[in-house]
Nucleic acid binder design. Structure first.
Length: 301
DNA sequence: CCCCAGGTAGCCA
DNA sequence: TGGCTACATGGG
């Protein structure tokens, strides 16, 4: 294991890894995190705002490169935040979640994670992702006090596992979707890497050919896996936020809502979406109700 | 017992 | 297009 410090700015490790965009990092205290990135094991914590302490099986130079890319540290978060609208909710969310960044995850890992996410709570998504990793992923020997780690299973490993053994990980009806999607990718009918050079629309169309991938999960993979920051996943929380706060009392069609989102939240709308999601999701419901009442978008304001 | 969870697919008008 | 509903499983 190698150790080194990585300088960071405008970055909060705990907020980022506990947000609803990624599910395969483990922690016991919310400060120390460990998991696999590709074939390498990483142990991370942030003793000060200005740097991460890293222990890894990767070489320091590769580790720095991988982590900088993964956490998007080459992008200016300030510039992104400046592009957000300045309403009270957005201001509160960006203040409460300072240092939350969108990750550049592996498309396959993202696709699998979000196929498993449908009508599941975030804690359970984490458990299921953990489960398929240690059952079907390749074990990674580490000679430290850390618990053993497993690489995220690749398509061939999930195909070989088969639908019934996937189902045994308590993923329910999602087992069929996951198995069939793994087959499509393992056979080469869908090439996730080739989507990196596609437009958002082209990539979306291909992703939605995967069983179990509809509009919402496709947006998640586009946003978290391919870095399209204008991709905008509309889950139950975001729908609630739009209906109650931004478009109260309006019976808008899906297309109208999408038009509002693109126009109002701008070129990093997906990034803004993540702040709103994590903020409102963790707000006591009375506080949220009060926010809704005070919405500047409400009638008579 | 109820309701809900970062939805999707299939069916119907 | 828009509106059902089944689909597994766990938690509050």
């Amino acid at each position: 294991m190698e150790s080194f410090d990585l300088r960071v700015r405008d970055f909060n490790l705990g907020l980022t890894l506990s947000s609803g965009q990624v599910f395969h990092w483990a922690t016991s205290d919310g400060c120390h995190w460990h998991g696999m990135l590709g074939k390498h094991f990483y142990h991370l914590h942030q003793p000060k705002a200005s740097f991460l302490r890293v222990h890894t099986t990767a070489s320091p130079s590769l580790g720095r490169q991988d982590l900088s890319h993964y956490f998007g540290l080459d992008q200016s978060l300030q510039r992104i935040l400046k592009s957000f609208p300045k309403d009270p909710l957005m201001r509160e969310a960006t203040h409460a979640y300072k240092g939350l960044r969108l990750l550049r995850q592996d498309p396959w890992v993202t696709l699998v994670s979000f196929i498993l996410s449908s009508t599941k709570q975030i804690l359970q998504i984490r458990q299921t992702v953990q489960e398929i990793s240690c059952r079907f992923g390749s074990p990674h020997a580490i000679q430290t006090h850390h618990s053993p780690a497993w690489a995220f299973p690749d398509p061939a490993q999930l195909v070989q596992a088969g639908e019934s053994r996937l189902r045994a990980c308590r993923m329910g009806y999602r087992a069929k979707y996951l198995y069939q999607t793994a087959c499509l990718i393992q056979e080469g009918q869908i090439q996730l890497d080739s989507l990196r050079t596609c437009s958002l629309e082209e990539a979306r169309e291909v992703l939605m050919q995967c069983p179990g991938v509809g509009p919402k999960i496709a947006e998640c993979v586009l946003l978290f896996g391919y870095g399209f920051q204008e991709a905008f996943p509309m889950d139950v929380w975001i729908r609630r936020i739009l209906e109650d706060y931004y478009l109260p009392g309006q019976k808008s069609s899906v297309a109208q809502v999408q038009a509002f989102v693109a126009d109002y939240f701008g070129p990093h709308s997906g990034y803004a979406q993540q702040y709103l999601f994590d903020h409102v999701r963790n707000l006591p419901s009375e506080v949220w109700q009060a926010m809704v009442k005070a919405s500047p978008f409400a009638q008579g304001s």
